[in-house]
Deep mutational scan, measured.
Amino acid sequence: TCNCGQEAVLLTVRKEGPNRGRQFFKCNGGSCNFFLWADS
Rank of each mutant, 00 (worst) to 15 (best):
C32R: 00
L11W: 12
C4A: 01
N28V: 11
N19V: 03
T12W: 01
G21W: 00
E16K: 12
N3L: 07
C4V: 00
L11T: 13
G29A: 15
R20S: 10
L10K: 12
L36E: 13
E16T: 11
R14Q: 13
R20D: 15
P18H: 06
G29C: 09
G21I: 01
C27A: 05
F34K: 03
R20E: 12
Q6V: 06
R20W: 07
F35P: 05
P18V: 10
S31K: 15
L11V: 14
N19D: 14
L36M: 13
L11Q: 14
S31G: 12
R22L: 07
V9S: 09
C32V: 00
G30Q: 08
S31T: 15
N19R: 01
K26C: 11
G30S: 07
L36R: 13
A38V: 07
N28L: 09
D39P: 10
F35E: 04
G29T: 06
F25K: 05
P18C: 04
W37C: 01
R20L: 14
E16L: 08
K15C: 06
L36Y: 07
S31W: 07
G5K: 08
T12R: 05
N3G: 01
T12A: 02
V9Q: 12
F25M: 10
K26S: 13
E16V: 04
G17A: 02
G21V: 01
W37K: 07
K26R: 13
R14T: 12
C27E: 03
P18W: 01
L11A: 13
N19S: 10
D39R: 01
R22M: 02
A38L: 07
L10E: 10
N33T: 11
V9E: 12
G5S: 05
L10S: 06
N28A: 14
G5V: 01
W37R: 03
E16R: 10
Q23T: 09
R14V: 12
F34L: 01
D39T: 07
G17V: 02
R20G: 10
N19E: 09
C32T: 01
R14W: 11
L36V: 08
Q23D: 13
T12E: 01
P18E: 05
G17P: 00
E16C: 06
A38P: 02
N3R: 03
R14K: 15
T12Y: 06
K15G: 15
T12P: 03
N28R: 15
W37A: 04
F34V: 01
S31A: 12
R22K: 13
G29V: 12
R14M: 14
C2S: 02
V9R: 10
F34E: 02
G30L: 04
S31Q: 14
L11S: 13
L36W: 11
A38D: 06
W37L: 03
C27L: 00
D39E: 11
R20V: 09
A8E: 02
S31C: 08
E7H: 11
G29L: 09
F34Q: 05
D39A: 04
G30W: 07
L36A: 14
G17N: 04
C32G: 00
K15W: 11
D39C: 09
V9G: 06
F25W: 11
S40P: 09
W37P: 08
A8D: 00
G5M: 07
L10I: 08
L36G: 10
G21Q: 02
T12H: 05
S31D: 14
Q6R: 14
E16S: 06
L36H: 09
S31L: 10
R22Q: 02
L10M: 09
N19W: 04
K26P: 09
N28T: 12
A8G: 05
K15R: 15
C32Q: 01
N33A: 11
L11C: 09
T1W: 00
F35W: 08
